[in-house]
């Protein structure tokens, strides 16, 4: 095992962790307001398709990313209305969002490109170093500068989230909604309002996480390109014990697993490549098994909030 293998692996880990960070933060913002969301995968799928389509039409990955976020919000409003206003069961409705958003994404792709059309491709977002005109294969230059804007945004968001939830009054109020909505309501916090805001943030972040896959990672769109990342993000939130820093570490770990499987696949082993592809999924199961079920999440998560009930 030589140095380039290791450095490439680390660079790829950062690359693969970024979409997970967006998706896991989406889940975190949702859960902190008491909404367990297993539909992140679906939101990411529709965000991914929108990002792809928009940057294909407009030629601008940035616009694609922006509209991907918007589409994520739109679809998540269905979830928000059903679970917050109608008090539908959250896990069930999250599942429905998966089914609906995946069907919608594949339908739009099919309608726009037609069946059996040649594979459409888009340009990817440029990295900071290429925008600055720096070319270097130094590991640290690559790690710090050869990244798209989205990578910096992801880490900025993690930092912001950590400060927001722990150091600001608004953040503590937000968390109170997820812990004990009735007490929050007696303090004058608009519980329903916070839950809707949470759903908007969640939709936007999940849409961006999905759009990352088609504007910064792969030049093509295929059905199922999110490949379970929405669910892995859910595991990352549990593994990261519902804190921004923990979630970041969990995402880097899962990103590492993903990078490892890609590296091992191209390393020319005689083992069928599918076994390497299993690594992120098996790692998720293994991690969840190891940490067990210490309940550290928001106590009000998963329960509907009915104003009129006492």
């Amino acid at each position: 095992m030589d140095m380039t293998f290791v450095t490439n692996l680390l660079l790829a880990s950062v690359h693969m962790a970024t979409p997970l960070i967006f998706l896991a933060l989406a889940e975190l913002y949702s859960q902190r307001a008491g909404l367990v969301h297993i539909g992140i995968e679906g939101l990411a799928a529709i965000g991914s398709l929108t990002g792809f389509l928009v940057s294909y039409i407009s030629g601008s990955p940035m616009t694609g990313m922006f509209l991907g976020a918007l589409m994520g919000i739109l679809v998540n409003m269905i979830y928000a209305y059903a679970t917050i206003t109608l008090c539908a069961e959250q896990t069930v409705y999250g599942m429905i969002i998966n089914i609906f958003a995946l069907a919608l994404a594949s339908f739009i792709y099919r309608v726009y490109f037609g069946a059996g059309a040649s594979l459409a491709q888009v340009n990817l977002m440029s990295t900071l170093s290429s925008a600055l005109g720096i070319t270097s294969d130094n590991f640290f230059v690559e790690l710090l500068l050869d990244q798209t804007l989205m990578v910096y945004l992801a880490y900025g968001l993690v930092l912001f989230t950590a400060v927001y939830f722990n150091k600001t009054k608004s953040g503590l109020n937000y968390k109170a909604v997820g812990e004990y909505p009735k007490a929050a309501a007696t303090l004058g916090i608009n519980v329903i309002g916070v839950k809707y805001v949470a759903s908007i943030i969640c939709g936007a972040l999940a849409g961006m996480g999905g759009a990352y896959l088609t504007t910064c990672y792969s030049t093509t769109y295929v059905d199922g390109n999110v490949a379970g990342r929405g669910f892995i993000a859910l595991a990352a939130v549990i593994f990261g014990r519902w804190s921004a820093g923990g979630v970041l570490l969990a995402c880097l770990f899962f990103g590492f697993c993903d990078a490892l499987q890609i590296r091992l696949q191209i390393s020319g082993s005689s083992m069928p490549y599918q076994f390497f592809q299993m690594i992120p999924y098996i790692a998720t199961v293994a991690v969840l098994t190891l940490i067990g079920a210490k309940k550290a999440g928001p106590k009000g998560a998963g329960k509907p909030y009915r104003k009129e009930e006492r």
Partner: peptide, 21 residues
């Protein structure tokens, strides 16, 4: 282990699908 059965069962879908492959 008190684990979330939804995530685990979905992860195993991917594993099964790759195994079938």
């Amino acid at each position: 282990r008190g684990q979330n059965e939804m995530i685990i069962s979905i992860m195993l879908n991917y594993v099964a699908s790759l195994f079938m492959s």
